[in-house]
Amino acid sequence: MHMTDNTIFITGGASGIGRGLAEAFHKLGNTVIIAGRRKALLDEVTAANPGMQSIELDINDPASINDVAQTLIQRYPALNVLVNNAGIMPFDDAAGHIDDATMVGTLTTNFMGPVRLTSALIEHLKSQPRSVIINNTSVLAFVPLAGNAVYSATKAALHSYSLSQRFTLRDTTVTVQEIAPPWVNTDLIHKGDDPRAMPLDAFIAETMAGLATDTPEVIVEAIRPLRDNPGSQEHGLIHGFNQSLVDNPIPVS
């Protein structure tokens, strides 16, 4: 994608990867609008980055999505980049009871929200000389984490949707790029500075370099072996991956 002269809307832009991307794009001189439900956090980020703007959005609410989409189109007619970044990552137990409200919330936030928001903005994006949709999935879209089974499944779904979306937009001015983060040291689950987590600044730097190319899928080199899932032999890979985390659990306190 072109890394300058854009008007960029980023969901979940008040913290973690979303904030990191927002600040990186802002430093390049792009017009950046961040969105989220927590106005205090949005205000904190925009105050720290003069010129960055924000709008409140409940990605779980179709009415909020439609209202925000219309506001964006009216207020920022040059809008040409959508970053579907907002997400939640609750733990669950696929071998036991799955709380229905938590499951629905995860599906709605991580998958239905990006689909709804893109749908609300797609005709506007197609009217621009060049546009980009960036979907934030996860390495867990390819190698699921058993303790976050529903989350992993939502990211696999968004990856699949991105593949279809890219094909159907092939004859338009809209391109689709997917970023698939590894474990990054953010507060998505718990920011504990575990040495296995990739530092946020290093992830953002490598991801921005990837976005500056025409590659449809941006991944950091550290996770390439997991991305290159060995097809029909994936069962052993996934078992071994999850067993390693059982043997060396992620600290949560």
Rank of each mutant, 00 (worst) to 15 (best):
E44H: 03
P225H: 05
P114G: 03
I88W: 15
D61V: 07
R75A: 13
A222Q: 07
P62D: 01
E178M: 14
I122T: 13
F91H: 04
N185V: 13
E206P: 00
Q74R: 10
N229S: 06
G240T: 05
D193H: 10
P249N: 05
G236H: 15
S253K: 09
M3I: 12
V45W: 13
P181T: 07
F111I: 09
H239V: 11
L140M: 06
T172V: 07
V143L: 06
V218Q: 01
T215Q: 04
I73A: 07
T31Q: 07
F25S: 00
D99I: 13
N49R: 06
P249F: 10
A156M: 09
V246H: 03
G231N: 05
S152N: 02
A197P: 00
G20C: 05
N60I: 06
R37I: 06
P251G: 01
T207P: 00
Q53W: 13
M89I: 14
D92F: 10
A120L: 10
V252Q: 06
F142K: 01
H26I: 08
S119I: 12
T109F: 14
P114W: 14
I189T: 08
I122R: 12
T172K: 03
H190I: 11
T7K: 02
H124E: 05
L107D: 06
L42Q: 04
A94F: 08
D171C: 02
A35T: 06
K155V: 15
P50M: 08
I250V: 11
A24V: 07
Y161H: 12
F25N: 00
E178F: 11
A94S: 02
L188F: 15
Q74Y: 14
D5P: 01
V150S: 02
P251C: 03
I204L: 10
H2Q: 11
M112Y: 15
A69L: 15
I219S: 01
P129N: 03
V68N: 03
L42K: 02
T7A: 04
G20M: 11
P225T: 04
I98S: 03
P90F: 14
G18R: 11
A120Y: 12
N229A: 07
V81A: 05
L82P: 00
S119V: 10
M1A: 04
P249G: 01
M1K: 15
D61W: 08
I250Q: 05
D214V: 12
A24T: 04
K126A: 10
A156S: 09
N84V: 09
P182I: 12
V184K: 03
G51D: 06
G16P: 00
K27Q: 09
L188I: 10
T207N: 02
G18P: 00
S119T: 11
A40F: 15
